[in-house]
C-alpha cells in the first residue's frame, strides 16, 4: 500500500471497500470514515460553505465540522463520527449543500 501521513496499525481489522467520488478505496470496517479518507489522501475533502476555501478533517472528535461529506446521498455528514461499512458511497462537497 502507498504510504501517507496517516497509516493504520497493522492488523487493524477486516478490510472492506468504499467509494469516494466513484473511486474504490480500501478501508477497515468500523473505523471512523474520516480516518479512512485521510489514510487514502490528505487532499481537501470539501470546500467551505461560505468562502469556498479548501477543508479537510481536523479535530476528529465531532467539534469542528471540517470533515463534512455526502455519505450515501446525505449531505453534511460528519465523517469523523460515523463508522465505515462495506460499500459506503462518499462524495466530496463543494460549498453549501443543496436540498436533497
Amino acid at each position: 500500500m502507498k504510504k501517507h501521513t496517516f497509516n493504520r496499525i497493522e492488523g487493524s481489522g477486516t478490510w472492506v471497500t468504499i467509494q469516494l467520488d466513484g473511486e474504490s478505496l480500501p478501508a477497515v470496517q468500523g473505523e471512523p470514515l474520516a480516518v479512512a479518507i485521510l489514510c487514502h489522501s490528505t487532499d481537501a475533502l470539501r470546500t467551505s460553505a461560505h468562502s469556498c476555501s479548501p477543508r479537510s478533517p481536523y479535530c476528529l472528535i465531532g467539534s469542528c465540522f471540517e470533515c463534512l461529506a455526502t455519505v450515501d446521498g446525505r449531505a453534511n455528514v460528519q465523517t469523523c463520527l460515523i463508522e465505515v461499512c462495506a460499500g459506503m458511497r462518499v462524495n466530496r462537497q463543494a460549498g453549501k449543500r443543496e436540498f436533497g
Binding site: N76, R97, F99
Partner: peptide, 8 residues
C-alpha cells in the same frame, strides 16, 4: 442554528 444550505 441549522447546517448551511444553498440560499432558499
Amino acid at each position: 442554528v441549522t447546517e448551511a444550505v444553498s440560499p432558499f
